[in-house]
Nucleic acid binder design. Structure first.
Lengths: 128, 128
DNA sequence: GACATATATATGCGCTTTGCATATAGGTGT
DNA sequence: ACACCTATATGCAAAGCGCATATATATGTC
């Protein structure tokens, strides 16, 4: 973790960014530049385009997406990505995992924040 | 991403693991060995203890937790961690961020999976 | 005593990931 | 010619991470 993450709003990275890109591709195909813009519009801060292009190629090597060149539009060619079955599976697994993670966090936080400690409280409340 | 993540169940890492450790420390203090066990009991697979010890020290350097030695019990000394205000703030930020991420994912997935495409569908459904 | 085992923390090594800057290239506008 | 926007890609240094290993304290057992 970097010092920025400590105080500021977190940004997606790693599997989290992978999942969001897959979700953006669900049902439609899109190219990197477009996906980066959509992430920024979705409320996450300015995304690093280099990292996104790299991650997309990596996802293709892993089989989560497939790509084709699109030269029909004016301007530079676009590498257009589509979701694969493996990508779909990954996305579903991720949603389930995220749910478990979130439920675990909220349960722990609520338990410690709002209630008297359970009977088997081995450590006692924070002393400092 | 590694090839294991593609098919298998994801495990927490990075900020996600940080958040879970902070949640485990909410209201109580605990030491690394204990936290590692609790993570495994929480349903995540066998966690790497080295990574957890390292992350905890890193979190301390970042100000998310503080630590003291506990020599009262038999056996080796235990480094006992407690949540700081900054750690609490990070945990709250993380929960909010996670919520945004999850809502975004589910909205996109539901939109593409169950409905006819919106009027401004620039790309059209996946062709393959 | 000698040895294995469980508890508890820490670190070295190598691979991967990531942020930042930079490169390359096609197209538009002045 | 020049600046600017779109679009993708890569080099480099730093950080992150899995795995093995080291260190130290106590218990049990031969």
């Amino acid at each position: 973790m970097n010092e920025k993450t400590t105080a500021g709003a977190p940004r997606p990275s790693g599997d989290m960014l992978t999942a969001h890109l897959l979700a953006l591709l669900k049902g439609w195909s899109a190219y990197g530049y477009e996906l980066a813009h959509r992430l920024e519009e979705a409320g996450f801060g300015e995304m690093n385009k280099g990292s996104i292009y790299r991650l997309l190629r990596q996802m293709e090597r892993s089989g989560l997406v497939s790509s084709d060149w699109d030269t029909s539009a004016d301007g530079p060619a676009r590498r257009v990505y589509s979701l694969t079955d493996a990508g779909n599976l990954f996305l579903n697994n991720w949603l389930a995992f995220l749910d478990a993670h979130r439920r675990g966090l909220e349960q722990l936080a609520a338990l410690a924040g709002g209630l008297t400690p359970p009977t088997a409280n081995r450590k006692g409340p924070k002393k400092s």
